[in-house]
Nucleic acid binder design. Structure first.
Length: 621
RNA sequence: CGGGGCGUGGCGCAGCUUGGUAGCGCGGGUGCUUUGGGAGCACUAGGUCGCAGGUUCGAAUCCUGUCGCCCCGACCA
């Protein structure tokens, strides 16, 4: 018996029984290839914005991906479970995430039941699983342990798009591990990393692991797995030597050297009428952007705290990385129960609404006094001040003088111009030199995030009082990790990576069927008989085979076979009279004429190889 | 939430500017012919033109409101 995936669906099916509806025209609702093809080939239908039905063909794909995921999770000792989607608000209040996930731009669907209890539909399961752990895990003897589930998740995306790629209801594998210490967590994290690599390889996907921001979920180490594709929503920055790859949100690099100001330039203010941008300032005064310190004002909103004005200093040639800024603000100010809800550039209208004097936007300098906030109606009356690390070594520089139409040249950071707290706030850009090797430059590529693994630490176990007794008899919070794979997104990412002008070219390991037998002319009794015989023999050999027994013309069946993307096609046609069939590999389209008797032995090793996906030969499935 | 766009038969679209019998292609059904790359001919079914008001003798078309969806941005395990 060939095949290794014990969760494979039924191994035979006739197209006449498959409720297959393919579309000749591109649907108007889709505009990336994978979304168009999944709709055209009859894999999915939209039910409402960001909500999709998984039709039988797609469900087979998802079932096969799930099978691979299960095998690899089980292999590293994770336990499959199924947790509630309907979750009580109080659990989320205890972790401090209810506000952040429901208020403002929160992504959690929430509702009130007839007893007036607040509930949420789970976008993730840290709270539930940690509450269970608190209940069940008491001793270090029970650790480590790892639970996983394959579940429908709900996220009220502001703008769902690209079909299954960013849906409001989607399938995810999520896993949570519990440990007595960081070393055990790190070990499981490494095992997960390896398991994820195997999962994507077995699915036939080219994926890269990148350093990532841990975002709203919290925690320290975090790594994303990206399926490389043109239409990916994430920007990856990596070095050609393969030693560094990171999401742009997280990426670090060496800033270029600042160009020193000519020493002859006089210190002090100078007139810069209407030169409120870096570009205008440079043009008007022969300056370089790296000689300027720009000041950005933002307004951060934390749950339960007054809005907090933020003053950020950046070198003029650098861009702010808002994710880094959010993280910096969160770690300084958020505290438990006051998550950062919103961060936006501060506007003149907002200043006016606070009944404050107008601020000279475009001419701001780091010396801007907290006094300008003193009369604010409900804002915190002082700026949270941060500066990007690249400013530390800057000598003399130009900055705003906090008066309209005027900048100033200062000799450097000093008592009049104190250097704010230094943090890495700048966005790394393609072309930047790498930190690990200044000879290497960052290059950009795009990816679809299909997996994300985190070392969470004790953030949730502390909030939810999930404690265990150590070997020394001391109570400590559990150390946690969490690990996600977007299963439905992965299916679409596979199409994005594997298609051509004719349709989908599924990697065999996740194809809905491994082989399709096409009867060229279903009215021809000889063809029909031979096709039926092959169909039965292939299915009996454990190959997942689809029989196109429709009374359509051959051309229609070929088009559909290409569109739905079954990896192997066996055509029973004119040659049937002499016992010959044609075998075509979908990817590449190479055709072989074979005697029907020789088909099975010819195919078996090829299909067996396909089931390994991209897994290296030396590794057992 | 800001900007742009679209709602007309199952799908893709025209008609709207300039109000007057609701159309085309694909798809569905029936029959005949055809039969290895989305066949041909004939017949046929299928639409309160997103919804609600308004203007008008008369509204798919003009006006107001509303709902839904798509795209860009912001947002995002």
């Amino acid at each position: 018996m060939i095949g290794s995936n014990p969760f494979r669906p039924a191994s035979e099916m006739r197209v006449t029984r498959l409720m297959l509806v393919t579309l000749r025209d591109d649907p108007a609702e889709a505009d990336i290839p994978s979304h168009r093809l999944l709709l055209r080939a009859g894999y999915t239908r939209r039910i409402s914005a960001g909500v999709y039905a998984y039709l039988p063909l797609l469900w087979r794909v998802l079932t096969k991906i799930n099978g691979i995921v299960r095998q690899e999770m089980d292999r590293i000792g994770a336990l499959e479970t199924l947790l509630p989607q309907l979750q009580p608000a109080d659990l989320w209040e205890r972790s401090g995430r209810w506000q952040g996930y429901t208020a403002g731009e929160g992504i959690m669907f929430h509702l009130v039941d007839r007893q007036d209890r607040s509930m949420g539909l789970g976008p993730t399961h840290e709270e539930v699983v940690t509450a269970l752990a608190a209940d069940l895990l008491r001793s270090y003897r029970q650790l480590p342990v790892c639970l996983y589930q394959i579940q429908t998740k709900f996220r009220d995306e502001i703008r769902p798009r690209f079909g299954l790629m960013r849906a409001r209801e989607f399938i995810m594998k999520d896993a949570y591990s519990f440990h007595a210490d960081g070393a055990s967590l790190a070990a499981t994290y490494r095992e997960m990393d390896q398991a994820y690599r195997r999962i994507f390889q077995r699915c036939g996907l080219r994926a890269v692991a990148v350093e990532a921001d841990s975002g709203a979920i919290g925690g320290s180490a975090s790594q994303e797995f990206m399926v490389t594709a043109e239409v990916g929503e994430d920007l990856i920055l990596s070095s050609a030597d393969g030693r560094y790859a990171a999401n742009q949100e997280r990426a670090v690099s060496l800033e270029s050297e600042a160009i020193p100001l000519e020493p002859s330039r006089p210190l002090g203010p100078f007139s810069t009428p209407a030169q409120g941008s870096i570009e205008a300032l440079c043009q008007g005064h022969g300056l370089e952007p790296s000689q300027i310190v720009k000041v950005l004002l933002l307004l951060a909103r934390f749950a339960g705290l007054p809005p907090q004005p933020v003053l950020v200093c950046l070198r003029g040639d650098q861009q702010l990385n808002e994710v880094k800024l959010r993280n910096a603000l969160t770690s300084r100010l958020a505290g438990s129960g006051h998550p950062l809800i919103d961060l936006q550039p501060l506007t003149a209208d907002q200043v006016a609404a606070q009944e404050l004097a107008p601020l000279p936007f475009g001419f701001l300098g780091p010396q801007l006094s907290d006094g300008v906030l003193a009369a604010a109606r409900d804002w915190a009356p002082r700026f949270e001040r941060l500066a990007d690390s690249s400013l530390e070594c800057l000598g003399a520089f130009v900055c705003g003088s906090n008066q309209d139409g005027s900048h100033q040249l200062v000799a450097g950071w000093d008592a009049q111009t104190p250097l704010p707290e230094l943090v890495d706030l700048r966005a790394a850009q393609p072309g930047d030199r790498c930190q690990h090797d200044p000879e290497q430059r960052l290059v950009a590529s795009r990816g679809i995030e299909v997996g994300h693994i985190f070392q969470l630490g004790s953030k949730y176990s502390e909030a939810l009082e999930a404690r265990f007794t150590t070997e020394d008899g001391v109570d400590e919070p559990l150390v946690m990790g969490c690990y996600g794979i977007g299963v439905s997104r992965l299916a679409q990412a596979a199409v994005e990576q594997h298609h051509d002008a004719q349709g989908i070219c599924w990697p065999l390991a996740i194809a809905p069927f491994e082989l399709i037998v096409v009867i060229a002319n279903a009215q021809d009794g000889v063809q029909l008989a031979l096709a039926e015989q092959l169909y039965a023999a292939l299915a009996a050999a454990g190959i997942e085979v689809l029989l196109d027994d429709r009374a359509e013309r051959a051309g229609v069946k070929f088009k559909d076979a290409d569109l739905i993307g079954i990896p192997w096609r066996v055509v029973v046609g004119r040659g049937a009279a002499t016992g010959m069939v044609e075998v075509v590999e979908r990817a590449g389209g190479v055709k072989h004429e074979l005697a029907a008797d020789a088909l099975l032995p010819w195919l078996e090793p090829r299909i067996e190889a396909g089931r390994r996906g991209l897994l290296p030969d030396e590794e057992p499935v």
